[in-house]
Simulated assay, not measured.
Amino acid sequence: MPQYDRFYFVELTKDLFGQTGVHRQWGRFGTWGRHRHDWYSTQAEAESALSDLVMQKLARGYLIKLPVSDD
């Protein structure tokens, strides 16, 4: 079974002025990695960009892992 030692994290985000964007962070496990924010005119554009990113990463072999709850 191959070992995957990289992560790719994406989320929708808003700034203090209400502008919607996509925050992404990637790198090797055990590091902070790199990050980038891309801002969009509308929430619909940001959601579309996020969806496209997820589809691209799934096509490259990344797996979806939901965050662990503190409950």
Rank of each mutant, 00 (worst) to 15 (best):
T31M: 07
A59W: 08
E45D: 10
S69D: 07
D52C: 01
D15P: 10
Q3D: 15
L53Y: 00
G27Y: 09
Y40K: 14
P67H: 04
T13W: 11
W39V: 09
T13E: 13
L53P: 00
S41K: 10
Y4D: 12
S69R: 08
P2T: 01
D71G: 10
G27L: 01
L53H: 03
S51K: 07
V54L: 04
W39T: 05
A44M: 14
A44Q: 11
W26F: 07
G30K: 00
E11P: 15
G18L: 05
Y4I: 12
A59Y: 08
G27V: 03
D52M: 11
F7E: 02
D71Q: 12
G18K: 02
P67W: 08
H37D: 05
L53K: 01
A59C: 06
E11Q: 06
D5W: 01
D70K: 12
H23I: 00
V10G: 01
S41T: 12
S48P: 00
L63S: 11
L66Y: 12
R6M: 15
A49Q: 04
Y4N: 10
W26D: 00
K57G: 04
Q25F: 04
L50P: 00
T20K: 04
A59T: 02
W26Y: 08
T13A: 08
L63G: 06
V54K: 02
Q43H: 14
Y40I: 04
G27N: 00
G61S: 13
F17W: 05
V54F: 02
T20N: 08
E47K: 06
I64Q: 13
Q3Y: 15
D15L: 07
D52N: 09
W26N: 01
Y62D: 13
I64L: 09
M55E: 06
M1F: 11
R36K: 09
L53A: 03
T42P: 04
P2F: 08
A49I: 05
L66V: 14
D52S: 03
W32Q: 13
P2N: 10
P67V: 01
L50I: 03
F9N: 12
G27T: 02
R36L: 08
F7W: 12
V22H: 02
F29D: 15
T20Y: 14
R6N: 15
R36N: 15
D70F: 10
L58K: 05
W39M: 09
G33A: 02
E45M: 04
G30I: 01
T20C: 11
D71I: 07
A46K: 01
Y62K: 01
H35R: 01
A46Q: 00
E45P: 08
F7K: 01
H23N: 04
T31E: 12
F7S: 00
I64E: 10
Y4V: 03
L66D: 13
H37F: 13
S69M: 10
M1I: 11
L16H: 13
S48F: 12
T42S: 10
W39F: 13
G33L: 03
G18C: 02
G21A: 03
R36P: 12
E11W: 05
Q25K: 05
G18I: 02
G30T: 00
R60F: 14
R6S: 09
P2M: 02
A46E: 05
Q56F: 12
G30Q: 08
V68C: 09
A49E: 07
S48C: 06
V54E: 02
R36G: 06
G30Y: 07
F29W: 14
T42A: 08
Q43M: 14
T20M: 10
D5S: 06
